[in-house]
Design a protein around this nucleic acid. Sequence first.
DNA 1: ATAGTTTGTTCCATTGAGTGGAACAGCTGT
DNA 2: ACAGCTGTTCCACTCAATGGAACAAACTAT
Lengths: 253, 253
Amino acid sequence: MTENAPNRVETSRKTIRVLDALREHGSSSVTFLARELGMNKSTVHNHLSTLEAEKFVVRDGTDYELSLRLLGFGGYVQHRHPLYQVAKREVHRLASQTGELANLMVEEYGQGVYLASEQGERAVDLDIYPGLRRPLHAIGLGKAILAHLPSDRVDDIIEEHGLPAETDQTITDRAELDAQLATVRDRGYAVDNEELIRGLRCVGAPIVAKDGTVLGAISVSQPVSRMNNERFTDEVPDIVQSAANVIELHTNH
Amino acid sequence: MTENAPNRVETSRKTIRVLDALREHGSSSVTFLARELGMNKSTVHNHLSTLEAEKFVVRDGTDYELSLRLLGFGGYVQHRHPLYQVAKREVHRLASQTGELANLMVEEYGQGVYLASEQGERAVDLDIYPGLRRPLHAIGLGKAILAHLPSDRVDDIIEEHGLPAETDQTITDRAELDAQLATVRDRGYAVDNEELIRGLRCVGAPIVAKDGTVLGAISVSQPVSRMNNERFTDEVPDIVQSAANVIELHTNH
DNA sequence: ATAGTTTGTTCCATTGAGTGGAACAGCTGT
DNA sequence: ACAGCTGTTCCACTCAATGGAACAAACTAT
């Protein structure tokens, strides 16, 4: 429909569009999805029947919703991810040590993907879950990763996704981003000062392999009210960086 | 292929078979999958191209593997699940309190699905992850759920899945299962004595809503060596049951 | 009750799209 | 240089996805 590149199997694409719509809108009926997707009621019905037979969706009366079988795929992908295996415990430790929100992120298709997220005792509730995608340039985690990617890779990513503003603090200028990335490489950690969500500060440290390739990043997020400038520039960066170092040690062997 | 019921969209089914094969075998090449699935090389290639364009798979040189986009769907399903929302913290508490493995399970399509799994300090490493499916009859969690399902539902489930033996301790006789389920209803918790995995004991308590419908179950798993008979029949059941009760209180409102 | 509206579902002719064989290209090792 | 692998492209054939129409079932309103 959009572009008939050397991609084939248009039908499966439609099924995927149905899945996407179910994720976006939650539990939905046949006619609703048909309207939403501009497809025939009958067609949507066929796709949903197939997905139900394959147990990818569950029907609740007249509505369909995504099933736990998708969690099976997701859990599998997470569980077998090499970085998750070694970093999981550190994320946990970071969350309980600080009492705040600890996150682990990797890059895929030019976006930041949360691999793990754990809330400490008094952590903010941000609706972050594994698999959620966020623009790299607007968060500490993402900038930590961008700072250690090859520069042509960074060019490609920005060309594809741009630098959209999430809040009025988001970096939208390429030159300013480059300057910040240089700083990140210099001092070893990245910060995010209300750039994705107002009132939230975030400190992220890159996880870099022996050969210099960046594997991901780990972070702590706190409300501004609990993160004064000292904590923001000294204490928290130290904790996060040491967590990243522990992970780096475990990845080399 | 198997049965042309009123299910349509055979093509999407093939795409799903490709996804299943990738999950089963991990990173795979085109020809390998073609052989494995009995499909033409060209066909598999088309499906994989489509999945790649839709970012459901990533190619690593000549091999394809499941991408983190699937984690997005999985994480979303988990995150929006009503029981997960309220039970998450209790699973966490249970794991850190006992130091062992704590799990949360719900039933879907007659199987047990782990919704959450957390390891305490000294917990066994069982390769359990959210979304993993296990037969209900072979685990404490599953029996806790079965005990509170309507009896005709239980009939249907056993008819569909049978009572396959996982170890030599697994219950394979319907009468014995019924007797155990009565005991579970009686004392309020279920046990699993090396029935799924040798050397592993497990105590599960059902989570029941006000109206009597069972929402899921929560459990603690320990190696036999650390779970003597006293802990197995007194201490651990108390802890698990109280966790279940806390969750039940949070679900009513 | 009755008529009207909206839902999900089934049916079927049309044609558009998935299929799979063959041919091609790129790679590795002997 | 050759043989035996890959992954990929191409294209004619035909099978299956499509979407309109007709259907039944569930509500709402009059």
